[in-house]
Design a protein around this nucleic acid. Sequence first.
DNA 1: GACAAACAATTCACCAGCGAAATACTTTCG
DNA 2: CGAAAGTATTTCGCTGGTGAATTGTTTGTC
Lengths: 171, 171
Amino acid sequence: MPKDLADLHVERWRDHWIDISFDDEVEALTVRLLNLARHLREAKQTALVRTDLQDFEYDTLHALMIRDTPGHASPGALAQELGVSNAGITGRLDGLEKKGWVKRMPGADDRRRVDVEVTRAGATVWRKAMSLRGTAEDELASALTRRELVTLNRLLRKLTLHAEESGAPSA
Amino acid sequence: MPKDLADLHVERWRDHWIDISFDDEVEALTVRLLNLARHLREAKQTALVRTDLQDFEYDTLHALMIRDTPGHASPGALAQELGVSNAGITGRLDGLEKKGWVKRMPGADDRRRVDVEVTRAGATVWRKAMSLRGTAEDELASALTRRELVTLNRLLRKLTLHAEESGAPSA
DNA sequence: GACAAACAATTCACCAGCGAAATACTTTCG
DNA sequence: CGAAAGTATTTCGCTGGTGAATTGTTTGTC
């Protein structure tokens, strides 16, 4: 089995910093998780170049579409799900609205609220972008056999459940 | 085995978007990888609150310390390893230099270059921050048995190697 | 030896995001 | 009823990051 960057990282670590003892497996795990996440982000970004969407615009539309009430949400809920501040969402929605991909409607019953709604154009561009993103992910996953993929997911689920007990949500 | 957020994500997905067919396992995998990476970043950030370092300052110092030539680097090399632009590095180094954690020395032989060098204070604060970060990672990894951890790393390595063939480096 | 191309780092103008304050409503309670 | 407390969103000032020039320094090449 050839070495990846995380292996090299750990080896180099040991060479130079023998006085600081870390668990190699744990260190390698975090390096790999971080690197893979970065890879996914970059792959997505590359895929999105073919659309009219910027990275954060896709994320926002995506969060809006995959909710329990697809295509409808309050700014606050989106902010929480996307892990950005309320102020940040306002900015993103300004941009999306200007491009005609979402509309802001005043809340019917409670007029403090705002209902964000995708437009037809918004839904269309989202679908296109999503399928491009999908192929990038499939490409990565193709490195594993089906059995390996299932095993990997099982282990990651265990890790995720542990992490979720203390920290941060969102899908 | 209880469900994690990725399971819920996939279920909800299927309910609402039956016309768009994605591979459930692949979708869950990417959601989990992204969520775990986010968890690690947040855990690190939480840990760093106890130091004088901001997140990106720690990253920069870290990249500077774990190189083959610990404590010495050119701005350009750091930029590449950290995945930020050259302009971005200049800004980070300005901040670190002002706080006295790194020094910029004019390149001896080639005066286009600049040699960035950690100071004693910089190395000290880095070590402190690093040990805090380490405990956060250990905590996460403690969710798995040793055997599981090794298996997970094996599968992730396979994935990483596949990803590295096209895309982005850095440790 | 001089002038163009290549390079490394920095400066510049701009952008997305943040935290805190402001705004605009609604609810609660005296 | 009306004042105070609460909630949802937006505005404001600032910060870290980016890509496109800019500056200063090599390195050809003729």
